[in-house]
Amino acid sequence: MTKPAELDLPVDGGTLRVLRFGEGARVAVAAHGITASAMSFAAVARHLPPDWSLFALDLRGRGHSASAPGPYGFDSHAADLCAAAERWGGGLPVALTGHSMGAYVALRAAARRPELFDRLLLVDGGLPLPVPADADPDALLDATLGPVIARLSQRYKSDEAYMALFRDHPALGPHWNDDIEAYVRYDITGPHGALGSRAQEGPVRHDGRELLTSAESFGADLAALSVPARLLYAPRGLMGTEPGMLPAVLVESWAARVPLLSDEFVPDCNHYTVLMGAPAKTVADRLTSPAQ
């Protein structure tokens, strides 16, 4: 695996780490999932044509941007994506993508600054989630992402112990490959005997609550789209089982309502392997070809 270049992106309040994959003149900018990092795009980047470069951000509170200050939330993350597009886009519109929570970040960036982007690729995210109006967002967050959030405060004796947590994960272990291993190793921080994730619980909880309570604003972002967009969605979810994160009926409903949004079902994958498994080639192909 070719090691990406590590770059710094000055943003309001601090600096973010950005991984540059490739050396081509054509540019794509990417945002990762809620507890993930820029390294989650390594498999996609490997399948890019040689004339492309992918600039993947470590969002505030994650990866090597873990110490970057707030504000957190989708407006802030989207502004950071736009800053990356302006810094490395060479004055031309660039391709934009996001996976999971990052898809909502990318959607917001495209809706707010469409002049910066010529296409948008949403990967298993980006559609408003149907949440009951009287639901407690913290309780719902714990019900859906409880084990993921709990991992952020746990400590492990060695790299191997931390890796074992992911090797035992039902959505990752059966599909283990070099890209998943590199992604997990990139996330490890701390002294030997007290290792843990770089992702910070505070920013993760903040963004998770906003994700669950902002269906209306994400719907407005979709309605405002003036950039051609594609949505790729997986049949299996966070635990590697059906249903997926985005039910087909939800996808069909929004595709019918948003003229510039097309959708594509990606078979034989889950929420993680759509990005870090064999379908990474599909993601790269769709990202580098104009949306219809």
Rank of each mutant, 00 (worst) to 15 (best):
S153H: 08
G190D: 02
E201Y: 14
A171N: 08
L141P: 09
R198G: 12
P147A: 06
G125D: 01
S153T: 13
E210P: 11
G196M: 15
F117D: 01
P203Y: 07
S153A: 11
I149W: 08
D142E: 14
Q154K: 04
V148Q: 04
L116V: 11
A143Q: 15
N177L: 13
T144L: 13
K157L: 15
M163T: 02
P203W: 03
E115W: 04
A164F: 14
D142A: 14
G196H: 15
G125Q: 03
W176M: 05
D178I: 08
V204N: 03
S153D: 14
P191F: 03
H206C: 15
T213V: 12
L212W: 04
R108F: 06
E115M: 03
P130S: 05
S158Q: 01
L152D: 09
V184I: 07
D207N: 11
L141S: 11
E160W: 07
F166E: 01
L145M: 15
M163D: 01
G173D: 05
V184D: 03
H175L: 10
A103L: 09
E210K: 11
L172R: 07
E181N: 13
P191Y: 00
A194L: 14
G102Y: 02
Y186G: 04
L116P: 08
L129T: 04
A194D: 15
Q200S: 12
P130C: 06
